[in-house]
Amino acid sequence: MSSHELKTGPLEYRRQEDQMTILGFWIFLGAEIVLFATLFATYAVLFGRTADSTPPMELFEPGIVLIMTFLLLTSSFTCGLAIHEMRRGNAKALRNWMIVTLVLGTAFLGFEIYEFIHYAHEGATMQSSAYWSAFFTLAGTHGLHVTLGIGWVILLLIQLAKRGLTPKTSRKFFVIGLYWHFLDVVWIFIFTSVYLIGMVV
């Protein structure tokens, strides 16, 4: 537990304990990859097992999915900008870009909830068949991650307001940044292998 602090480099990397936290988070992301991969594997194996319920190609709409994708891609970009500003020492810009990210993330979530309710009205729920169980679990787990991410960002914004930019708050923002970009990566694969392939096959 050495508390030696480097004098240069990004704030979040200066203390060894923050380096370790960031490394630990990378390892956690490795575990998250496997978590989502398991859900993808389940989805792939159960693909087409819709029993008597509505098949996905009748429900998936390219428009709404593209909007969701762009919302999340943009939020990932603004989140990247927030971290960029943080490294320039600009706490205010960090806060503003983070708020933009939050708004975009919430919008994404809103669309997803709308989408789920819409499917449920069309008779496709978690309970209706193996395929839909897999679909709702995969997309839902991602949605849950986004929800937690939003709550987390709010907590960090409060801390930023209270404490300003310190090695510790910077590290926390850097970590949430990683998390947010990672969720975007997961969404890219959901977009591709669930929605696009679901609309093609």
């Binding site: 389940t42 194996v45 159960l46 097992r49 819709t50 029993a51 978690m126 309970q127 209706s128 068949s129 193996a130 395929y131 839909w132 169980s133 897999a134 709702f136 679990t137």
Partner: peptide, 12 residues
């Protein structure tokens, strides 16, 4: 009530 590993709903 999901249908992942069930005999109903084409679970596997």
């Amino acid at each position: 009530g999901a249908q992942f590993f069930t005999l109903t709903g084409e679970g596997m």
